[in-house]
Computed example of a mutant assay.
Amino acid sequence: MKFILLPGLLLAFMACFFSEHASAQVTKSFTVYGTLDKFYPVVFTDSAWWRHEASEIQIGRSDVHRDSSWRGSLIAKFRYHTTNWGNGSSFIDADIHQYSNVPDNSKFIAGWRDATANNSAFIIIIWLRGNTSYYFSSRYNDRATVYDGVTNPLPFEEPVINVPGTTSRPQTFKTSIDSYVNMNGNTFGSGTVYYNSSGTNFFGGNIGVGTTTPTAKLEISGAPSWTSAGWGKAIKLGRAQSMLLDAGRNTHFFLFNLQP
C-alpha cells in the first residue's frame, strides 16, 4: 500500500511542524565571570512582548558540585513583561529555590529590574553571582547577555531615548542582595496578592512585616519612629478597635476606644 502526500498537505504539515517546534523550550548555558563576592548584571530579552504575553525564562544549576564542590544548586523561574517606555502592565515575578551547605556562596540572585523606563529595548536585568556557570531556557528563544567586565564591559548602560532631562543609567555589580528578594520562594513584582479561597490559607514558616529575616511566627518591624523616645509605629489600630492575646491559661483582652 502506498501513501501519496499531496503538495498542499505537505506544506501544511511542514508549517505545523515548524510552528510547533519554534516555540519549544531552548536550553542554553552561559558563564558569569568576575569574582564570587559580586553579583553581575545579566540582560535578558522580553521576546513575548509583541505576542501580547508575559515572557518566561528559567535559570538553573541542578548539580550542586558544578564549578566546585558544594558550590550550590539553583532552580529559578522569572515571569515578566516590560513597560517599554511607558506602556505599563509591567511586572517581574520570581520563583527562586537554591541550596548550598557553604553559606558564603549559597545565594546566586541579588536583584532584578525592568531596564526599559526610558527606552523600548524589551529587556530586564538580573544580577547573578560571579565566577559561576548557569543554564537557562525560554519559550521564545530569549537571549542572555552578560556584563561582568570580561564577557562584556562594565557598567551596562541602559538605553536612553534622547529626551530632554533624561540621563543614562549605568548598572554595575552588586555586593549584597536587595531587600525585596525572597531568596527561597516567590517575589511578586507588582500589585497585591489576595487569597479568596473559602478554605484555609496558611504560611508554614515565619512571617515578617518590615523585615526580611523574621525570627518568630510573626515579627513586625516598628518604623518609623513616632515618639520622642524613638518608639517605632509597629501596629496601628483604627478607632474603637480591640486586641486579644491568647497565652494559653492566661488570656488578655485590650479594648481601645479613646475619645479625642
Rank of each mutant, 00 (worst) to 15 (best):
I125A: 14
W127Q: 03
T83V: 03
A115N: 15
I125H: 12
S137Q: 14
S138D: 08
D95N: 14
S106F: 01
N84I: 01
Q98R: 12
F122S: 14
G88R: 07
F91L: 05
W112M: 03
D93E: 06
Y99G: 00
N119P: 04
F91C: 03
D95Q: 12
W127F: 13
Y135L: 12
V102G: 00
G130T: 05
F136I: 13
D114I: 02
I126Q: 04
W112P: 03
G88D: 03
A94D: 05
F122P: 00
Y99N: 10
I96A: 04
N84D: 15
F108A: 14
L128Y: 06
G88T: 06
S106W: 02
V102H: 11
L128R: 08
A117H: 08
R129V: 10
Q98I: 05
N131I: 01
I123N: 13
F136R: 11
N131R: 08
W112C: 01
H97A: 12
F136K: 10
A94M: 14
D93C: 03
D95R: 07
I125V: 15
L128C: 07
S106N: 12
V102T: 13
L128E: 06
I124M: 06
S106C: 04
S137N: 14
N119E: 02
N131K: 12
N118K: 14
F91A: 04
D95M: 07
N105S: 06
G111L: 09
A110E: 05
S106Y: 02
W112A: 09
G111P: 06
A110I: 03
S106D: 12
I96P: 01
A115F: 02
A121L: 00
I109F: 09
D114T: 03
D104N: 08
I124H: 09
A94L: 11
N131V: 00
S100T: 05
A115T: 12
W112L: 01
A115H: 04
N84S: 10
N118I: 00
G130V: 06
S89C: 02
Y134P: 08
N105D: 11
S90L: 00
D95A: 12
Y134I: 09
S120Q: 13
S89K: 13
G130Q: 08
A110R: 08
Y134L: 08
F136Q: 10
A94K: 01
V102W: 10
T116N: 15
G86P: 04
R129P: 01
I126R: 01
N84T: 00
I109P: 07
N131D: 15
S137L: 11
A115P: 01
R129F: 01
I123F: 00
G111R: 10
N131T: 00
